[in-house]
Amino acid sequence: MALAQTNDVARLLRAAAPDLAVEVVKFETRGDRDQTSKLLQHGGKGGAFVAEIREAMRAGTLQAAMHSLKDVPGNEETPGLVLGAMLARDAANDSLVLRPGLSLETLRAARGKGFMIGTNAVRRAAYLRRLFPEATVIHFRGAADTRIAKLDRGDRQRLPDGGAVGPADALVMARSGLERIGMAARIAHDFSIDEMLPAVGQGIVTVECVETDWATRARLAAIDNVPSRLSAEAEREVLWVLNGHCNSPIAGHAMVAGHEMTLRASVLDDAGRFIEATRRGPANRPRELGRAVGMELLEKGAAEIIARTRPDEH
Rank of each mutant, 00 (worst) to 15 (best):
T216N: 14
H189I: 14
D190C: 03
W214N: 10
A188M: 11
A164Q: 08
A222L: 13
L220E: 09
T206W: 03
W214S: 14
E235H: 05
A168D: 00
A199M: 11
D194I: 09
A168F: 00
V200C: 12
R229L: 04
S228V: 10
D161E: 01
N225Q: 11
S192N: 13
D194Y: 11
G201R: 14
T212N: 15
A221L: 11
V210K: 05
L159F: 01
L178V: 15
G162H: 14
V200D: 13
A185P: 05
I223Y: 11
V165K: 00
T216F: 10
F191T: 07
A234W: 08
A232N: 01
M196R: 13
L230C: 06
E179N: 09
I193Q: 05
E211L: 11
R186E: 08
G163N: 07
E233V: 03
S176I: 07
A199I: 08
G182N: 02
G163Q: 04
Q202M: 14
A188E: 10
P167E: 04
I181N: 05
R219Q: 04
E179A: 11
V210L: 04
V226T: 04
A168Y: 00
R180I: 06
A174M: 02
V226G: 02
V210I: 10
V205F: 10
S192E: 13
R158Q: 10
L220Q: 10
E208K: 11
P167S: 06
H189N: 14
G162W: 14
T212S: 15
A199V: 09
G166T: 00
V165M: 02
A184H: 04
R219E: 02
A188K: 05
A199R: 08
A215T: 15
D224G: 14
D169T: 03
G203S: 13
I193F: 07
P227R: 11
S228F: 11
V165Y: 00
T206G: 15
A199H: 11
P167A: 02
S176W: 06
F191W: 12
T216C: 08
Q202W: 08
G182C: 00
R229G: 11
R217C: 05
R186G: 05
T206K: 08
D161K: 01
V207T: 14
I187C: 01
L159C: 00
A215I: 13
P198K: 12
V226C: 01
T212F: 07
E179M: 04
S192H: 15
L230W: 04
D169Q: 06
M196T: 15
L230M: 05
A234R: 06
D190W: 00
I193H: 02
Q202L: 12
G162A: 14
E179W: 01
R175P: 02
W214V: 12
A185T: 12
E179H: 08
V226A: 09
W214R: 13
L230A: 04
A168S: 02
G203L: 12
D190H: 01
A199L: 13
